[in-house]
Nucleic acid binder design. Structure first.
Length: 375
RNA sequence: GGGGAGAUACCAAAGUGGCCAACUGGGGCAGACUGUAAAUCUGCUGUCGAAUGACUUCGUAGGUUCGAAUCCUGCUCUCCCCA
Protein backbone atom coordinates (compact mmCIF):
# COMPACT_ATOMS: atom_id res chain seq x y z
CA UNK A 1 0.00 0.00 0.00
CA UNK A 2 2.85 2.37 0.80
CA UNK A 3 6.25 2.89 -0.69
CA UNK A 4 8.90 5.24 0.53
CA UNK A 5 10.35 7.17 -2.37
CA UNK A 6 13.02 9.42 -1.05
CA UNK A 7 14.62 9.95 2.31
CA UNK A 8 15.98 13.30 3.36
CA UNK A 9 19.77 13.12 3.75
CA UNK A 10 19.88 15.35 6.81
CA UNK A 11 16.69 14.44 8.69
CA UNK A 12 14.11 11.67 9.06
CA UNK A 13 11.82 13.30 6.51
CA UNK A 14 10.79 11.17 3.59
CA UNK A 15 8.46 11.16 0.63
CA UNK A 16 6.24 8.29 -0.34
CA UNK A 17 3.27 7.02 -2.27
CA UNK A 18 0.13 5.82 -0.59
CA UNK A 19 -1.97 3.57 -2.81
CA UNK A 20 -5.72 3.38 -2.37
CA UNK A 21 -8.52 2.22 -4.62
CA UNK A 22 -9.53 5.86 -4.98
CA UNK A 23 -6.13 6.97 -6.13
CA UNK A 24 -2.53 7.44 -5.17
CA UNK A 25 -1.60 9.96 -2.51
CA UNK A 26 1.86 11.42 -2.45
CA UNK A 27 3.25 11.97 1.02
CA UNK A 28 3.82 13.96 3.12
CA UNK A 29 0.19 14.88 2.82
CA UNK A 30 -2.22 17.18 4.58
CA UNK A 31 -5.79 15.94 4.77
CA UNK A 32 -8.51 18.57 5.14
CA UNK A 33 -10.98 17.68 7.87
CA UNK A 34 -14.52 16.99 6.68
CA UNK A 35 -16.08 15.78 9.89
CA UNK A 36 -19.71 15.51 8.87
CA UNK A 37 -19.25 14.63 5.24
CA UNK A 38 -18.21 18.16 4.28
CA UNK A 39 -15.10 20.23 4.64
CA UNK A 40 -16.92 23.12 6.24
CA UNK A 41 -17.52 25.94 3.83
CA UNK A 42 -15.78 24.37 0.85
CA UNK A 43 -17.38 22.82 -2.21
CA UNK A 44 -15.99 19.49 -3.31
CA UNK A 45 -15.29 21.18 -6.62
CA UNK A 46 -13.09 23.78 -4.92
CA UNK A 47 -11.48 21.11 -2.81
CA UNK A 48 -10.30 19.60 -6.07
CA UNK A 49 -9.74 22.58 -8.33
CA UNK A 50 -8.54 25.31 -5.99
CA UNK A 51 -7.01 23.30 -3.17
CA UNK A 52 -6.18 20.05 -4.92
CA UNK A 53 -6.85 17.99 -1.82
CA UNK A 54 -5.82 14.39 -2.44
CA UNK A 55 -7.55 12.85 0.56
CA UNK A 56 -9.94 14.15 3.18
CA UNK A 57 -11.23 13.10 6.57
CA UNK A 58 -14.61 12.14 7.88
CA UNK A 59 -15.68 11.32 11.39
CA UNK A 60 -17.36 8.15 12.54
CA UNK A 61 -19.02 9.61 15.62
CA UNK A 62 -20.58 12.49 13.75
CA UNK A 63 -21.62 10.52 10.68
CA UNK A 64 -23.04 7.74 12.82
CA UNK A 65 -25.26 10.21 14.70
CA UNK A 66 -26.15 12.15 11.58
CA UNK A 67 -27.12 11.23 8.92
CA UNK A 68 -26.79 7.72 10.39
CA UNK A 69 -25.70 4.41 8.98
CA UNK A 70 -28.94 3.67 7.12
CA UNK A 71 -28.59 6.81 5.01
CA UNK A 72 -24.91 6.16 4.39
CA UNK A 73 -25.43 2.58 3.40
CA UNK A 74 -28.43 3.57 1.29
CA UNK A 75 -26.32 6.11 -0.55
CA UNK A 76 -23.72 3.50 -1.38
CA UNK A 77 -21.11 4.84 1.02
CA UNK A 78 -19.57 8.16 1.88
CA UNK A 79 -17.82 8.70 -1.46
CA UNK A 80 -21.06 8.58 -3.40
CA UNK A 81 -23.01 10.32 -0.70
CA UNK A 82 -20.81 13.39 -0.72
CA UNK A 83 -19.62 13.14 -4.31
CA UNK A 84 -15.96 12.77 -3.56
CA UNK A 85 -14.13 10.20 -5.62
CA UNK A 86 -10.71 10.60 -4.05
CA UNK A 87 -9.58 8.80 -0.90
CA UNK A 88 -11.25 9.35 2.45
CA UNK A 89 -10.04 8.52 5.94
CA UNK A 90 -12.48 8.29 8.83
CA UNK A 91 -11.52 8.92 12.39
CA UNK A 92 -13.01 6.44 14.79
CA UNK A 93 -14.62 8.76 17.29
CA UNK A 94 -11.88 8.26 19.84
CA UNK A 95 -11.25 11.97 19.80
CA UNK A 96 -14.91 12.65 20.61
CA UNK A 97 -14.59 10.45 23.69
CA UNK A 98 -11.99 13.00 24.71
CA UNK A 99 -13.58 16.22 23.50
CA UNK A 100 -17.10 15.30 24.59
CA UNK A 101 -15.95 13.54 27.72
CA UNK A 102 -18.71 15.06 29.89
CA UNK A 103 -21.13 12.99 27.83
CA UNK A 104 -19.23 9.73 27.89
CA UNK A 105 -18.08 6.94 30.16
CA UNK A 106 -15.57 4.23 29.36
CA UNK A 107 -15.70 0.58 30.23
CA UNK A 108 -13.79 -2.46 29.10
CA UNK A 109 -16.51 -3.04 26.56
CA UNK A 110 -16.24 0.38 24.98
CA UNK A 111 -17.48 3.94 25.30
CA UNK A 112 -20.96 4.74 26.49
CA UNK A 113 -22.00 8.18 25.51
CA UNK A 114 -24.89 10.50 25.00
CA UNK A 115 -25.44 12.14 21.68
CA UNK A 116 -24.57 15.83 21.75
CA UNK A 117 -27.48 16.31 19.37
CA UNK A 118 -30.42 14.79 21.19
CA UNK A 119 -29.01 13.25 24.36
CA UNK A 120 -29.81 9.70 23.29
CA UNK A 121 -27.63 6.93 24.73
CA UNK A 122 -25.21 4.98 22.53
CA UNK A 123 -22.30 2.61 22.92
CA UNK A 124 -19.24 2.41 20.73
CA UNK A 125 -17.17 -0.73 20.95
CA UNK A 126 -14.02 -1.48 18.99
CA UNK A 127 -16.11 -3.90 16.95
CA UNK A 128 -19.07 -1.60 16.33
CA UNK A 129 -16.76 1.20 15.27
CA UNK A 130 -15.24 -1.09 12.63
CA UNK A 131 -18.73 -2.05 11.50
CA UNK A 132 -19.85 1.56 11.26
CA UNK A 133 -16.73 2.44 9.31
CA UNK A 134 -17.39 -0.45 6.94
CA UNK A 135 -20.77 1.15 6.28
CA UNK A 136 -19.41 4.66 5.95
CA UNK A 137 -16.90 3.22 3.55
CA UNK A 138 -13.73 5.25 3.91
CA UNK A 139 -10.51 3.96 2.34
CA UNK A 140 -8.63 4.23 5.59
CA UNK A 141 -10.43 3.57 8.85
CA UNK A 142 -9.11 4.13 12.33
CA UNK A 143 -9.18 1.85 15.33
CA UNK A 144 -11.21 3.02 18.30
CA UNK A 145 -8.91 4.46 20.93
CA UNK A 146 -9.01 6.69 23.94
CA UNK A 147 -7.35 10.03 23.30
CA UNK A 148 -6.03 10.90 26.74
CA UNK A 149 -6.20 14.50 27.87
CA UNK A 150 -3.26 16.62 28.97
CA UNK A 151 -2.19 16.71 31.68
CA UNK A 152 -2.73 13.03 32.40
CA UNK A 153 -1.09 11.24 35.30
CA UNK A 154 1.10 8.27 34.60
CA UNK A 155 -1.21 5.65 36.06
CA UNK A 156 -4.16 6.80 34.06
CA UNK A 157 -2.08 7.11 30.90
CA UNK A 158 -0.89 3.55 31.32
CA UNK A 159 -4.34 2.19 32.08
CA UNK A 160 -5.76 4.04 29.12
CA UNK A 161 -3.00 2.86 26.79
CA UNK A 162 -3.53 -0.74 27.84
CA UNK A 163 -7.24 -0.39 27.24
CA UNK A 164 -6.59 1.12 23.81
CA UNK A 165 -4.33 -1.86 23.04
CA UNK A 166 -6.95 -4.38 24.11
CA UNK A 167 -9.55 -2.54 22.07
CA UNK A 168 -7.13 -2.64 19.18
CA UNK A 169 -6.91 -6.44 19.26
CA UNK A 170 -10.66 -6.62 19.10
CA UNK A 171 -10.82 -4.08 16.27
CA UNK A 172 -8.26 -6.00 14.23
CA UNK A 173 -10.14 -9.22 14.74
CA UNK A 174 -13.43 -7.68 13.65
CA UNK A 175 -11.72 -6.01 10.74
CA UNK A 176 -10.22 -9.30 9.56
CA UNK A 177 -13.58 -11.03 9.89
CA UNK A 178 -15.41 -8.51 7.71
CA UNK A 179 -15.11 -6.99 4.27
CA UNK A 180 -15.65 -3.65 2.64
CA UNK A 181 -19.21 -3.23 1.42
CA UNK A 182 -18.71 -1.24 -1.72
CA UNK A 183 -16.20 -3.17 -3.77
CA UNK A 184 -13.02 -1.37 -2.85
CA UNK A 185 -10.33 -2.01 -0.32
CA UNK A 186 -10.37 -0.60 3.18
CA UNK A 187 -7.41 -0.62 5.54
CA UNK A 188 -7.30 -0.21 9.30
CA UNK A 189 -4.75 1.99 11.07
CA UNK A 190 -3.99 1.42 14.75
CA UNK A 191 -3.16 4.35 17.01
CA UNK A 192 -0.21 4.81 19.34
CA UNK A 193 -1.10 6.33 22.71
CA UNK A 194 0.87 6.80 25.94
CA UNK A 195 0.37 10.49 26.69
CA UNK A 196 3.69 12.29 27.27
CA UNK A 197 5.56 9.42 28.91
CA UNK A 198 8.60 8.13 27.08
CA UNK A 199 8.30 4.54 28.21
CA UNK A 200 4.57 4.36 27.51
CA UNK A 201 4.98 5.81 24.06
CA UNK A 202 7.78 3.36 23.39
CA UNK A 203 5.74 0.45 24.67
CA UNK A 204 2.70 1.50 22.66
CA UNK A 205 4.69 1.99 19.46
CA UNK A 206 6.29 -1.42 19.89
CA UNK A 207 2.94 -3.00 20.35
CA UNK A 208 1.41 -1.24 17.38
CA UNK A 209 4.40 -2.17 15.23
CA UNK A 210 3.88 -5.88 15.91
CA UNK A 211 0.41 -5.76 14.37
CA UNK A 212 1.82 -5.26 10.90
CA UNK A 213 -0.99 -3.02 9.74
CA UNK A 214 -0.57 -1.12 6.45
CA UNK A 215 -0.24 2.20 8.23
CA UNK A 216 0.12 3.50 11.76
CA UNK A 217 -1.12 6.55 13.57
CA UNK A 218 0.04 8.58 16.52
CA UNK A 219 -2.74 9.97 18.65
CA UNK A 220 -3.13 11.79 21.92
CA UNK A 221 -0.77 14.58 21.00
CA UNK A 222 -1.35 18.28 20.59
CA UNK A 223 -3.93 18.19 23.30
CA UNK A 224 -2.32 20.99 25.30
CA UNK A 225 1.21 19.78 25.97
CA UNK A 226 4.17 21.97 24.95
CA UNK A 227 5.23 21.49 21.34
CA UNK A 228 8.70 20.32 22.38
CA UNK A 229 7.11 17.53 24.36
CA UNK A 230 5.07 16.50 21.35
CA UNK A 231 8.16 16.44 19.14
CA UNK A 232 9.98 14.31 21.69
CA UNK A 233 7.11 11.80 21.69
CA UNK A 234 6.97 11.71 17.91
CA UNK A 235 10.68 11.05 17.78
CA UNK A 236 10.47 8.15 20.20
CA UNK A 237 7.55 6.61 18.37
CA UNK A 238 8.91 7.08 14.87
CA UNK A 239 12.12 5.28 15.76
CA UNK A 240 9.98 2.22 16.45
CA UNK A 241 7.17 2.35 13.91
CA UNK A 242 8.12 0.52 10.71
CA UNK A 243 9.73 2.70 8.08
CA UNK A 244 7.91 1.09 5.23
CA UNK A 245 4.48 2.05 6.52
CA UNK A 246 2.94 5.50 6.50
CA UNK A 247 2.89 7.35 9.80
CA UNK A 248 -0.11 9.49 10.50
CA UNK A 249 0.07 12.16 13.18
CA UNK A 250 -3.51 12.75 14.16
CA UNK A 251 -4.91 16.22 14.53
CA UNK A 252 -1.71 18.18 14.00
CA UNK A 253 -1.31 21.05 13.66
CA UNK A 254 0.14 24.47 13.08
CA UNK A 255 2.29 24.93 9.98
CA UNK A 256 5.38 24.84 12.19
CA UNK A 257 4.19 21.67 13.95
CA UNK A 258 3.78 20.04 10.57
CA UNK A 259 7.20 21.01 9.31
CA UNK A 260 8.83 19.71 12.49
CA UNK A 261 6.85 16.50 12.38
CA UNK A 262 7.77 15.90 8.76
CA UNK A 263 11.37 16.31 9.83
CA UNK A 264 10.77 13.55 12.37
CA UNK A 265 9.37 11.20 9.76
CA UNK A 266 5.61 11.81 9.76
CA UNK A 267 3.81 11.28 6.46
CA UNK A 268 0.19 12.20 7.06
CA UNK A 269 -1.55 15.04 8.84
CA UNK A 270 -4.99 16.40 9.44
CA UNK A 271 -6.10 19.42 11.39
CA UNK A 272 -9.06 21.75 11.73
CA UNK A 273 -6.86 24.81 12.05
CA UNK A 274 -6.97 25.96 8.43
CA UNK A 275 -10.76 25.79 8.33
CA UNK A 276 -11.84 26.61 11.87
CA UNK A 277 -9.24 29.27 12.52
CA UNK A 278 -9.83 30.55 9.02
CA UNK A 279 -13.51 31.04 9.76
CA UNK A 280 -12.43 32.94 12.83
CA UNK A 281 -10.15 35.25 10.89
CA UNK A 282 -6.73 33.63 10.99
CA UNK A 283 -5.06 33.68 7.59
CA UNK A 284 -1.85 31.81 6.85
CA UNK A 285 0.65 33.15 4.35
CA UNK A 286 4.25 32.49 3.45
CA UNK A 287 5.10 35.83 5.07
CA UNK A 288 3.40 35.08 8.35
CA UNK A 289 0.06 34.74 10.06
CA UNK A 290 -2.61 37.41 9.74
CA UNK A 291 -5.56 38.13 11.99
CA UNK A 292 -7.70 39.55 9.25
CA UNK A 293 -10.16 40.98 11.78
CA UNK A 294 -7.58 43.48 12.99
CA UNK A 295 -8.27 47.10 12.18
CA UNK A 296 -4.96 47.45 10.38
CA UNK A 297 -6.39 45.61 7.37
CA UNK A 298 -9.51 47.74 7.06
CA UNK A 299 -8.14 49.71 4.13
CA UNK A 300 -5.55 47.29 2.86
CA UNK A 301 -6.70 46.60 -0.65
CA UNK A 302 -3.80 44.33 -1.53
CA UNK A 303 -4.42 40.67 -2.23
CA UNK A 304 -5.07 38.31 0.68
CA UNK A 305 -1.81 36.62 -0.25
CA UNK A 306 0.09 38.12 -3.15
CA UNK A 307 2.08 34.94 -3.76
CA UNK A 308 -0.84 32.84 -2.63
CA UNK A 309 -1.36 29.23 -3.56
CA UNK A 310 -4.72 29.70 -5.26
CA UNK A 311 -6.46 32.25 -7.48
CA UNK A 312 -8.79 32.97 -4.59
CA UNK A 313 -5.83 34.14 -2.50
CA UNK A 314 -4.83 36.65 -5.13
CA UNK A 315 -8.27 37.68 -6.36
CA UNK A 316 -9.79 39.13 -3.17
CA UNK A 317 -8.30 41.89 -1.04
CA UNK A 318 -7.53 41.80 2.67
CA UNK A 319 -9.93 44.67 3.26
CA UNK A 320 -12.73 42.78 1.54
CA UNK A 321 -12.06 39.54 3.40
CA UNK A 322 -11.90 41.48 6.67
CA UNK A 323 -15.24 43.03 5.92
CA UNK A 324 -16.80 39.66 5.12
CA UNK A 325 -15.48 37.94 8.23
CA UNK A 326 -16.36 40.80 10.55
CA UNK A 327 -19.83 40.96 9.08
CA UNK A 328 -20.32 37.25 9.56
CA UNK A 329 -20.80 36.77 5.85
CA UNK A 330 -20.66 33.18 4.68
CA UNK A 331 -18.38 34.05 1.80
CA UNK A 332 -15.72 35.16 4.28
CA UNK A 333 -15.57 31.72 5.85
CA UNK A 334 -15.47 30.19 2.41
CA UNK A 335 -12.62 32.34 1.11
CA UNK A 336 -10.60 31.95 4.30
CA UNK A 337 -11.07 28.18 4.32
CA UNK A 338 -10.10 27.78 0.69
CA UNK A 339 -7.07 30.00 1.02
CA UNK A 340 -5.85 28.40 4.25
CA UNK A 341 -6.33 24.87 3.00
CA UNK A 342 -4.54 25.74 -0.22
CA UNK A 343 -1.75 27.20 1.87
CA UNK A 344 -1.46 24.05 3.99
CA UNK A 345 -1.44 21.87 0.91
CA UNK A 346 1.13 24.11 -0.72
CA UNK A 347 3.31 24.01 2.39
CA UNK A 348 3.34 20.23 2.53
CA UNK A 349 3.91 20.06 -1.24
CA UNK A 350 6.91 22.32 -0.87
CA UNK A 351 8.16 20.15 1.95
CA UNK A 352 7.98 17.13 -0.33
CA UNK A 353 9.79 19.01 -3.07
CA UNK A 354 12.61 19.96 -0.71
CA UNK A 355 12.90 16.44 0.63
CA UNK A 356 13.33 15.35 -2.96
CA UNK A 357 15.97 17.95 -3.69
CA UNK A 358 17.74 17.11 -0.45
CA UNK A 359 17.63 20.47 1.29
CA UNK A 360 14.65 19.94 3.56
CA UNK A 361 16.33 21.02 6.78
CA UNK A 362 17.54 24.31 5.43
CA UNK A 363 14.24 25.11 3.79
CA UNK A 364 12.32 24.14 6.90
CA UNK A 365 14.32 26.47 9.12
CA UNK A 366 13.84 29.36 6.77
CA UNK A 367 10.14 28.63 6.47
CA UNK A 368 9.68 28.40 10.23
CA UNK A 369 11.22 31.84 10.64
CA UNK A 370 8.74 33.28 8.18
CA UNK A 371 5.80 31.46 9.74
CA UNK A 372 6.67 32.71 13.20
CA UNK A 373 5.69 36.22 12.13
CA UNK A 374 2.36 37.62 13.17
CA UNK A 375 1.68 40.30 10.63
C1' G B 1 -53.72 76.14 21.84
C1' G B 2 -54.56 71.87 25.61
C1' G B 3 -52.68 67.38 27.89
C1' G B 4 -48.86 63.75 28.68
C1' A B 5 -43.95 61.34 28.47
C1' G B 6 -38.88 61.79 28.27
C1' A B 7 -33.41 63.49 27.90
C1' U B 8 -28.00 57.99 30.95
C1' A B 9 -21.41 56.26 27.88
C1' C B 10 -20.37 55.13 20.28
C1' C B 11 -25.89 53.16 19.67
C1' A B 12 -30.05 51.01 22.26
C1' A B 13 -31.49 50.52 27.14
C1' A B 14 -31.60 49.42 32.84
C1' G B 15 -30.91 52.13 37.21
C1' U B 16 -35.03 56.34 40.41
C1' G B 17 -30.86 58.81 47.64
C1' G B 18 -25.12 55.56 49.50
C1' C B 19 -23.68 48.56 47.45
C1' C B 20 -22.87 53.43 40.60
C1' A B 21 -17.76 54.73 36.59
C1' A B 22 -23.18 53.06 36.20
C1' C B 23 -26.95 46.11 34.62
C1' U B 24 -27.69 44.20 29.75
C1' G B 25 -27.61 44.00 24.27
C1' G B 26 -25.37 45.86 19.97
C1' G B 27 -21.15 48.15 17.93
C1' G B 28 -15.79 48.79 18.49
C1' C B 29 -10.82 46.84 19.92
C1' A B 30 -7.90 42.64 21.07
C1' G B 31 -7.14 37.40 22.15
C1' A B 32 -8.08 32.03 21.86
C1' C B 33 -8.88 27.93 18.61
C1' U B 34 -4.44 21.54 16.79
C1' G B 35 -7.99 13.23 15.04
C1' U B 36 -14.49 20.18 14.51
C1' A B 37 -20.95 19.93 19.87
C1' A B 38 -17.08 25.94 17.03
C1' A B 39 -19.96 30.96 10.91
C1' U B 40 -17.60 29.50 18.15
C1' C B 41 -15.64 31.22 22.74
C1' U B 42 -12.98 34.88 26.05
C1' G B 43 -11.32 39.74 27.66
C1' C B 44 -11.46 45.03 27.38
C1' U B 45 -14.51 49.17 25.97
C1' G B 46 -15.17 57.55 30.58
C1' U B 47 -9.73 59.62 31.29
C1' C B 48 -4.74 58.54 33.41
C1' G B 49 -2.22 54.09 35.32
C1' A B 50 0.89 47.59 34.98
C1' A B 51 -2.05 47.77 39.36
C1' U B 52 -3.96 49.40 44.37
C1' G B 53 -6.04 53.86 42.84
C1' A B 54 -6.87 58.96 41.34
C1' C B 55 -9.82 62.17 38.47
C1' U B 56 -14.15 63.76 35.38
C1' U B 57 -19.37 61.91 34.09
C1' C B 58 -26.01 60.44 33.56
C1' G B 59 -29.42 67.41 28.67
C1' U B 60 -28.21 72.24 31.26
C1' A B 61 -27.84 75.92 35.47
C1' G B 62 -28.75 76.18 40.38
C1' G B 63 -30.52 73.99 45.04
C1' U B 64 -31.68 70.20 49.15
C1' U B 65 -28.54 66.41 51.64
C1' C B 66 -23.08 63.88 55.36
C1' G B 67 -23.96 61.79 50.32
C1' A B 68 -27.54 62.91 43.96
C1' A B 69 -27.92 59.63 37.53
C1' U B 70 -31.71 59.23 41.38
C1' C B 71 -35.20 64.61 45.31
C1' C B 72 -36.56 70.18 44.27
C1' U B 73 -36.55 74.71 40.93
C1' G B 74 -35.45 77.34 36.35
C1' C B 75 -33.89 76.73 31.37
C1' U B 76 -33.05 74.00 26.63
C1' C B 77 -34.40 70.14 23.59
C1' U B 78 -37.18 65.59 21.94
C1' C B 79 -41.43 62.53 21.41
C1' C B 80 -46.76 61.23 21.85
C1' C B 81 -52.10 62.37 22.19
C1' C B 82 -56.24 65.93 21.59
C1' A B 83 -57.69 70.44 18.94
Amino acid sequence: MFEVQKKSPDSNARTGLLHTDHGIVRTPVFMPVGTAGTVKGVLQRDLKQEINAKIILGNTYHLYLRPGTDVLSGSGGIHKFMNWDRPILTDSGGYQVFSLSENSKLSEEGAHFRSHIDGSAHTFTPESVVDVQRIIGADIIMAFDECTPYPCDYDYAKKSMDLTHRWLDRAVERFNDTEGLYGFRQVLFPIVQGSVYDDLRKQSAEYIATLGMPGNAIGGLSVGEPAEMMYAMIDIVNKILPEDKPRYLMGVGTPVNILEAIDLGIDMFDCVIPTRNGRNGMIFTGEGIINIKNKKWAKDFSAIDEKGPTDISRYYSKAYLRHLIISGELLGAQIASIHNLAFYLWLVDEARRHIETGDYRAWKNQMIDALAQRI
